[in-house]
């Protein structure tokens, strides 16, 4: 059966409501690599019987890159527009596929009139596993594989969430290893603060190459990510180190979806 994802507009027209709004984010909507993460999240929600919807064409950038680049006007215009849409549908609970969307919806929208319960997808996935709503297949392909988790700044340092993504990874029965710099000391991938949209300033190295060295030190074969931008940066870093045949870069949603036989 085809997996269809309704929009809130469609549900509203049918007079239905839903438990969860999946906030996809711009990268998750438009970037081909990140779309695979989005699909994995949708498959997980579907498999766990979570009624959910998306905003579709009504979703708009949260304003995060604009705000971190100094354009508070553009951010607040985006926020006002999004809050009008979200409040119009009476949204209560949001799961995001991106820690930047997660942070801004959770910490910066409430003051502007947008108060919701906001969860990052790794937090939600961890809850689904804990509640037994999502089962990992026996003999999942990651069993015993060496995996290291790269903390996204806006999930970890920014909001103190270090445990949920790790707890979700525990379900894989893998060989989880930490990088030298992890959790509150984790090194940025280099994409935050609107860096994703511009070239880096002059220096002697790229930040993602430095971070890839941290991964290589651990001997991990999989880099688990929780952010589409980190995913891009780490994928580039692995390519630069000429390790693309040996090291996979995958979002936690993709790892879990694959281990639960959903892909």
């Amino acid at each position: 059966m085809a997996l269809t994802v309704p929009t809130l507009a469609e549900m509203n027209a049918r007079g239905e409501s839903t438990e969860v709004l999946f906030w996809v984010g711009c990268a998750g909507s438009f970037d081909d690599r990140a779309k695979r993460i989005t699909k994995a999240i949708a498959r997980i929600l579907h498999a766990a019987d979570v009624p959910f919807a998306v905003l579709g064409a009504e979703e708009s950038c949260t304003g995060d890159p604009a705000k971190r680049a100094g354009n508070e006007f553009l951010f607040q215009m985006q926020a006002a527009q999004n809050i009008a849409v979200l409040n119009g549908y009476g949204v209560k609970r949001i799961v995001t596929g991106c820690p930047h969307c997660f942070n801004i919806l959770k910490n910066e929208y409430p003051e502007l009139g947008g108060e919701y319960e906001v969860l990052h997808h790794t937090q939600f996935i961890q809850q689904l596993i804990d509640d037994g709503r999502l089962r990992i297949a026996d003999g999942n392909p990651f069993k015993g594989r060496r995996i290291t988790f790269h903390d996204p700044c806006y999930l970890g340092r920014g909001n103190g969430e270090y445990e949920a993504p790790r707890a979700a990874l525990q379900a894989l029965d893998a060989d989880l290893v930490e990088m030298r710099r992890c959790k509150s000391k984790g090194l940025c991938c280099g994409a935050g603060g609107a860096q994703m949209f511009k070239d880096a300033e002059k220096g002697n190295r790229e930040v993602n190459h430095e971070r890839t060295d941290d991964v290589l030190e651990t001997g991990a074969k999989v880099i688990a990510t929780g952010c589409p931008f980190c995913n891009t940066m780490m994928t580039d870093g692995v390519k630069n180190a000429e390790k693309e045949g040996e090291i996979d870069v995958k979002d936690i949603a993709e790892l879990i979806a694959e281990a639960a036989d959903l892909l």
Binding site: A2, K39, E59, G63, M77, F197
Partner: peptide
């Protein structure tokens, strides 16, 4: 140019909002 994209397309890249649901169509197929 990122600002312009956010302002005009609601995304930091120059993609139209109507393409936001494409992944869902792909997923369905």
């Amino acid at each position: 140019s990122m600002f312009n994209n956010v302002e005009n397309n609601g995304a930091p890249w120059a993609f139209p909002a109507t393409d936001r649901g494409k992944w869902a169509d792909e997923l369905a197929s």
